[in-house]
Design a protein around this nucleic acid. Structure first.
Lengths: 233, 233
DNA sequence: CAGTGGTCTAGACCACAAG
DNA sequence: TTGTGGTCTAGACCACTGG
């Protein structure tokens, strides 16, 4: 047993961060190996490993076998943001969520959508649009394409009460996806739906999800003016 | 020693994900304890723990002592996005980066900024604005406030060649921060700087960083039309 | 109170990549 | 080739919290 107090991996992580912050370990410098640090902190190497892995995940150090661990020269900050179901997001603000279905059709998607779905020309897709409301006010316009061949159950789904956004999250587990954020101006149709002025700046997200390298669905969400996404660093 | 092949924590993670995907473990269900899974997979409990911790980090399951591990009813997708230094971001696209300093003054920040800096009224701040260029074209307008008391070295920094964005990343390690994204319309001044039309939709990010609960700097970046942020899911 | 996850240990072997 | 991180083990104690 050890004489001193037990040290946690969080404690080691904090100490490592402190040494980086104070330039005791300057950018680009190689820091001691796990074994050395384990001796210094009087703990097992696994504990040091856990701590350094966390620091590496945050991007502040880079680790490579044989080369050791180095303080990053150009730390890439990583922000993690939660993307909740829209209903949850609205209810978390204490508002009531409703979804109003606008369009539901089976059609061949335009090339841009087909590319995102990784689909082949001629394949039928389900095209659904609708409006998410917060306490009766427009919150976001959802424009979604679903590959029916990949998700046959979608054909029978009732999107009049449950938005595609929520239905898919609950029914279709996916493996991967990507999301992008941008700003666009509201055109006349969008302005009418979102009850905003034409030309207003809208926050827009586009998401695609897939499973087994097969595109499942792609969606464009246009949020009413004033929407803002937050994330920690 | 064991008879079968060694199983990795990634393998266990993938198997867990498969069972969730196939509804073998439906949403809301409690899954077997770590000890049981360790027996089933023929590995140590620590290995199962590592795998389940990863799955929990992705938001697909929720773990609580005594209550066990449950498949999330409303999985909150987490997106991780990298926030590189602007120069790196531009150079990654094969373009040349320049920074053009527009304003540098010491002034008392408006209340909104002061709130973000957690500063006290009357404290002087460094106010710097400038334009990031990609191959000579406007890329983003930077509007930054720096707490001089917290970062005295900023007073002597040369922002004519190195943008505050880059200078701070390289010189001021911080502990925490937050970032938000929004869409706004370009006003006349912004349109002139970014060489876009007045009223264009601009993607805007606002970041604040702090250390020891003390605000260091807050910045608003307004990107030229067409800018887009990508992230994985 | 007691079940479950959280963490630590001491040791071992392995994979990768720098020299 | 060899140093370094990556991972696994078998066991242990602890912290939290549900019942």
């Amino acid at each position: 047993m050890r004489a001193g107090l037990q040290i946690s991996w969080q404690g080691i992580r904090d100490e490592v961060l402190r040494r980086i912050r104070t330039r005791e370990w300057p950018p680009g410098a190689r820091i001691p190996g796990e074994a050395d640090l384990a001796v210094e902190f009087g703990c097992a190497r696994a504990t040091v490993n856990r701590a350094l892995r966390e620091v590496a995940d945050s991007g502040l150090v880079e680790r490579r076998r044989k080369a050791g661990t180095r303080v990053s020269l150009h730390p890439v900050r990583k922000a993690t943001l939660d993307i909740p179901v829209i209903r949850k997001e609205i209810e978390a603000r204490g508002a009531r969520h409703d979804f109003s279905l606008i369009l539901r059709e089976e059609a061949e998607p335009p090339a841009r959508i087909r590319g995102r779905l990784l689909g082949t020309p001629g394949r039928a897709c389900l095209h659904v649009t609708g409006l998410h409301l917060a306490d009766g006010h427009p919150h976001a316009f959802e424009d979604r394409w679903i590959d029916i061949a990949a998700i046959p159950a979608a054909r029978d789904a009732d999107f009049t009460r449950c938005s595609p956004n929520e239905w898919l999250v609950q029914n279709i587990p996916f493996e991967g996806g990507d999301i992008s954020f941008a700003a666009t101006r509201a055109d006349a149709a969008m302005a009418q739906v979102l009850e905003c002025a034409e030309g207003d700046a809208l926050f827009v997200t586009e998401r695609s999800t897939w499973r087994n390298d097969r595109g499942l669905t792609t969606v464009r969400l246009s949020f009413a003016p004033g929407y803002r996404v937050h994330a920690g660093l």
